[in-house]
């Protein structure tokens, strides 16, 4: 089998995010970037399938974005992925989820993957659109937000468990298919030191616009039908008002404030 895992470099959840001067991007200065946590589940699941099958299955990690994408690809290789592809080109900048999915689908298609795994969403922009759009471009079935994945013995179908309101849903997919991974699917491994040493020797393949077979009009900002107009910081939390007095006084004052100041009663 060939398994493609999609990984994205995102700001660490503990980083303090600052909006850049242009108002439509994040200032990367001082931000620590890590592999999108949901993508870690995807890498782990790909590696577990490979280890279970014990055949010539290969896991290829693919990341699209700026140069720092190389770091998450190196992490995926250190975890045990066989190959890595970095999809990067100035023309790809400013693309929305659909334009990026178009590029990724074009890059993945010639790989003839049996299974494409990604995170259920990237924790930076939370769109959760790129993976499903890739499946659409490739015209393959998809199961999203999956907590359990089983391959049939003949490797022709996969059964995915999805958490839905009030229960679980089991979906059978014919392969090739795309699956996005949710917390609970597995426990991602740490990159071992021997894994890191092996990763150092592996080459990360660069793929740009020319290799994708697409035109500049189909990708990046030019190929996008939506664009970010502005980022806003969350409004600062206003000061908390403490109401003094005994319970009766407090209750009375609270009702007055809710009516006259907050105007919610």
């Amino acid at each position: 089998m060939k398994i493609v895992v999609l990984v994205k470099s995102v700001p660490d959840t503990e980083s303090k995010i600052k909006i850049a001067a242009d108002g439509v991007s994040i200032d990367p200065a001082g931000v620590k970037f890590v592999m999108n946590p949901y993508d870690e589940f995807a890498v782990e699941e790909g590696l577990r399938i490979k280890e279970r099958l014990k055949d010539d299955t290969t896991v290829v990690a693919v990341s699209m974005g700026p140069e720092r994408g190389v770091e998450v690809l190196r992490t995926a290789l250190a975890m045990g992925a066989d190959d890595a592809i970095h999809v990067s080109d100035p023309a790809f900048e400013g693309g929305d989820a659909q334009a990026n999915a178009r590029v990724l689908a074009a890059v993945i298609k010639p790989l003839a993957a049996d299974l494409i795994l990604g995170g259920k969403q990237a924790i930076d922009f939370d769109a959760a659109q790129t993976c499903p759009a890739i499946a659409e471009y490739l015209e393959i079935p998809q199961a999203l937000i999956v907590t359990e994945l089983k391959l049939s013995d003949d490797k022709k179908t996969a059964t995915a468990r999805r958490r839905v309101e009030g229960g679980d849903e089991l979906v059978e997919l014919s392969l090739p298919a795309l699956v996005t991974c949710e917390k609970g699917l597995n426990e991602p491994r740490y990159a071992s030191l021997p894994g890191i040493m092996k990763a150092k020797k592996k080459e990360i393949k660069k793929v740009g616009l020319a290799d994708s077979g697409l035109t500049a009009e189909q990708v990046g900002a030019a190929g996008s039908k939506s664009k970010v107009v502005k980022f806003h910081n969350l409004p600062e939390r206003p000061a908390v008002k403490m109401i003094p007095g005994d319970a009766a006084t407090q209750a009375k004052e609270l009702v007055r404030l809710l009516r006259e100041e907050a105007k919610v009663l």
Partner: peptide
């Protein structure tokens, strides 16, 4: 190096 960074990352995450 990149390799040191990965080692640091694994050690840090495990810690």
């Amino acid at each position: 190096t990149e390799e040191h960074r990965l080692i640091q990352e694994t050690a840090r995450n495990f810690a």
